[in-house]
Design a protein around this nucleic acid. Structure first.
Lengths: 151, 151
DNA sequence: CTAATTGCAAATGATTTGCAAAATT
DNA sequence: AATTTTGCAAATCATTTGCAATTAG
């Protein structure tokens, strides 16, 4: 909390680049293994720390839905996901019928749709009143290149 | 997996009843503390095991969204939620504007809406092909009373 | 030079599990 | 009587954190 400037480390760059090169919405561990091919001495802790920072900077997205592990997405465009209850894999849904109860999604990618989750995120009245003193906001410049890493 | 019959234990009944009496979408630990007032010797493990069973039977709903802890909901009616990013509390949204990008939800309960998560859940083509041999389906008779506990 | 960041290892925190005893059908 | 379920404790798993050494700016 209360973060100020960020530095452009090799590991941070690598993590973001590798994530962007993947379409699989990897978990932290999966990403760790992928990045390790480029930076063999990177630690899992560093991956976690950077994923957190990069998410705060808005340079990637955390997918904290079903399943136990958090998954990460380097695609910043607004889009939704389908998660397979069997294998846990997550796929993209770019063309979404906006009525979530409309299961026409059937067709999309051949998934057998079982249901959906829709959750709004916000600040409740009680918390909204309390002074906001931490950095719990989102948003960031998609004009990235991971250069101006300022929060 | 491969579950057959379920028994009606005092702890299972208590857990479901207590959950139904709460509107706060408790975590397993919170529910544990609440149930403990009625059954002081119940264990946290038992609470977890029963929450799992009851969810499988469709007698309650698991809310596995943001945040680290899974929350539980005894309300089986289709409805959505708002989660406060500050305190983690989850509130109900019964009257939902169906276009999730429509932030008119503003008003609802005085939340300051920051965004939303929408995820479809289903079975991917690959998994759909493989023979289905486990009990990974949902659905159940809302005509409950937790009597006919058969899977 | 200074503060942010890393690697490593140990610490957490939520959830799961093995097992013998207790309870349900 | 046969099985499921429980309580307890130990085990897992993902994620976090303390700290001294390293590195970016």
């Amino acid at each position: 909390m209360g973060d100020i400037l960020r530095r452009n480390t090799r590991q941070r760059q690598a993590i973001l680049e590798v994530l962007r090169g993947m379409t699989s919405h990897p978990t932290a561990a999966e990403l760790y293994n992928a990045v390790r091919k480029r930076l063999p001495r990177i630690s899992l802790g560093t991956v976690y720390r950077n994923l957190e920072v990069l998410a705060r900077l808005g340079l990637l997205r955390k997918l904290e839905f079903g399943g136990t592990e958090t998954r990460f997405d380097g695609d910043l465009q607004e889009h939704y996901h389908v998660r397979c209850v069997e294998c846990g894999r997550v796929a993209d849904l770019h063309d979404l019928p906006f009525d979530p109860s409309d299961l026409r999604v059937e067709g999309l990618g051949g998934y057998r749709i079982l249901g959906h989750h829709l959750e709004y995120v916000g600040v409740c009245p009680a918390c909204g009143t309390r002074m906001r003193s931490d950095g719990s906001s989102r948003s960031a410049a998609p004009g990235d290149s991971a250069d101006q890493m300022v929060e």
